[in-house]
Write a protein that binds this DNA or RNA. Sequence first.
DNA 1: GCCAAAATCACCCAAAAGTATGACAATCAC
DNA 2: GTGATTGTCATACTTTTGGGTGATTTTGGC
Lengths: 145, 145
Amino acid sequence: MKKQYLFYGLILGALMILMRLIEYRFLIRSHVFELYGGLIALLFMGLGLWAGRKFTQKRAPVEIVQVPPPVFDENKINDLGISKRELEVLQLIVQGHSNQEIADRLFISLNTVKTHSARLFEKLEVNSRTKAINRAQELGLIRVN
Amino acid sequence: MKKQYLFYGLILGALMILMRLIEYRFLIRSHVFELYGGLIALLFMGLGLWAGRKFTQKRAPVEIVQVPPPVFDENKINDLGISKRELEVLQLIVQGHSNQEIADRLFISLNTVKTHSARLFEKLEVNSRTKAINRAQELGLIRVN
DNA sequence: GCCAAAATCACCCAAAAGTATGACAATCAC
DNA sequence: GTGATTGTCATACTTTTGGGTGATTTTGGC
């Protein structure tokens, strides 16, 4: 970690010096300007550093999401317009089966499973099976027995 | 890692050069000073933000482990040899996040998330994230309450 | 300070999952 | 018997995951 700081410091310093040299060649502006720019750079760099640190430390910790008690609720299934077959697929998804496994178990093609799961995801308003698992447990769509 | 340094260096250099170019173009006009200052401010603010985030990313996530409410079995985590970071990843997987989302949240690369999850799957003796979710819930590796 | 474990990242390849669209038959309500 | 719904399947394509390997860096314990 310290090495990194040092490294970046050096890079920054080197670039600053480089800037100076180039600037000298053009001889266009007064030193006031450079001072001003440097100061601004330093100031905002510091501000950025501070802000970055501040935001990062709060966002980084992984919050543990509380899962509501999974109570099986048949009404929700109807509310969401989930069909019988879709529910079967959902159950197998929640149990951790792959699409191929589900296809084999229900004696339907892989494509059909995909169709069902796609519709399922739509109705559950998710875009992946892992999120569907969460959502299903949240909503109590699945019997936990 | 070397590549990364180089990359950052180049980015920085490129920005510097860009600054110079822009500066040159506006030299003739009157409001150069303010423009230039603002630009510097913005650039370094961004740089600072990035750096602050980068440098603090590793420390922050560690905190979660001490959060109290446990009805989960910590012994099993040790038994299986699951590391702290791996557990974090597991928690996010169980919560339904994609690898990319996990990477973003933990401020690590997608590749790293894959490495963690691969080891995780090994230790949990599964071969997919959905099965890992089941297994984690079975073993009580995750705080559910 | 050194060593081992943990964490990070990269690259490649293959498999699985997801998206979009279209099609067709069975069932059921009206 | 018509229309809507459901279930089935396909093709094509993109994205995500998973598996394997190797490497560097950081951390923690001794």
